[in-house]
Design a protein around this nucleic acid. Sequence first.
DNA 1: AATACGTGGCG
DNA 2: TCGCCAAGTAT
Length: 293
Amino acid sequence: MSVRLDPEVMVGWFDQVARDLPWRRPDCGAWGVLVSEIMLQQTPVNRVQPIWLEWMERWPTPSALAAASQGDVVRAWGKLGYPRRALRLHAAATAITTDHNDIVPSDVDTLLSLPGIGEYTARAVAAFAYGQRCPVVDTNVRRVVARAVHGAGDAGPPSTKRDLADVEVLLPKEDSFAARYSAALMELGAIVCVARTPRCADCPVFDTCAWQHAGRPAYAGPAKAVQKFAGTDRQVRGRLLDVLRDAPGPVTRAQLDAAWSDPGQRDRCLDSLLVDGLIEQTPNGLFSLPGDH
DNA sequence: AATACGTGGCG
DNA sequence: TCGCCAAGTAT
């Protein structure tokens, strides 16, 4: 059988066509890589890039971010989405400052112990910031492996153990080469082997792709759950937080009430934001971003 | 294992 | 227009 996703081919292709992203520059340290990985969770590159540049200038080290207020961090997160990530990154920066001498850990298990860092991000930091040989599995890699190796139209439901094992066997021996290979796998899924309309004519491993050989069968697995947004609590929470991000300081209950008409849903979402620590109530009954008063 | 969690671009 | 999709994590 032909070699699937050949490392020499993949890395050669990556060196030629990879996007010039700021967190891939040689002078970008582990902190920059970590910040980028958190911001990129479920969020497109183009939206992340300008915010990442602002953050690196403003908070060039974990301790610099840790010294900021939660409110400043949430406001600087802007509209990247899933703002709990901002709070968790701030908490991770605090832990790195106090427990790890202001140095982003390189060990996967240590990384996993930090807030907001899961199976993907821990391995992404170990590989991309520290050049380690460890499988890095995100949605792009799952799709590339599903097609090129398994001949399926798309990846089935995630299974951490199986997904990691799938990539482990592909990984070349040497550390830094394996890390570059991991980046190449992700890049292929991001710009060529994309979900909707794959650009197979531009694919460096077209001739060994199991999906091509199988005649490009359609995805046969269980239907993926479609996420609604309009009218959901997520939208309402977003509206509420948007009021606070745009305000210079604490706001009144009436200002928050204007953000959504349904009182029951509004109250429920405000409560959940208070529980999450994304909003605080001030002593005089106003509402603010955490620490923003 | 399913579900909650933001936001906006694109076909 | 509107559903799909984007470098996931926590519970």
